[in-house]
Design a protein around this nucleic acid. Sequence first.
DNA 1: CTGAATCCAGATGGATACTG
DNA 2: CAGTATCCATCTGGATTCAG
Lengths: 118, 118
Amino acid sequence: MGCKITAFQEEQKKRMRSVQDAMDALNGKWKIAIISSICCYGKRRFSDILNDVEGVSNRMLSKELKELETNQLIKRTILDTQPISVQYELTAHGNTLQNIISSLSDWGIVHRKKIIGK
Amino acid sequence: MGCKITAFQEEQKKRMRSVQDAMDALNGKWKIAIISSICCYGKRRFSDILNDVEGVSNRMLSKELKELETNQLIKRTILDTQPISVQYELTAHGNTLQNIISSLSDWGIVHRKKIIGK
DNA sequence: CTGAATCCAGATGGATACTG
DNA sequence: CAGTATCCATCTGGATTCAG
């Protein structure tokens, strides 16, 4: 079993893993909205994002921001203000998401029309 | 509050919703693998996919297939065999996912190199 | 063979209160 | 302001069993 097609199957596995890596980086209830907010304004403070993203709690915002930072999609800067404020911006790597997000958005629009109606 | 930028904000909201629609359609632990399996072979039976997708249980396979069918990404056909067998294939709409999946895969490869190392 | 039903553990996310 | 800590409800997915 699995002789000639093994190499092909390995390719498939890698492909699936890559897609999953991408999905994981984008997953979580608020990540897309958070990225949009930051991307939109260039630089954005914690409390700004908290207002931009309708419905998110500070707990979840903090959590998702941390994950985005771990994935090097955003950069966190503590500003020397009184009281303290923290600024977030997309990294170069985070900016490469824009193509993906555009593709997903385009497909999502078609998909919604197809499934829900219009 | 929110006067001139309202239209812009509305655009943003739509965009975010579209991305989310796309993510929802692709989400779930096994969907990518299931789509890959079906896509790969063109037509595939339940038990074939169960073997292709390493680790999936029949419960989850059934569930994810149903969601994919609800989203009109795959077509389900009952074959008149004894015992009964069921064939799955991508719909035209499901095939339009290939671009998205390619984009995600490409980005995922870069992302993995960036984050994990290589 | 192709599922559906049940049970159960762990992950996810909301509400609230608290800290530096 | 920018989080952290705690508690709790819901969701997700695995194992197993049952059914057409």
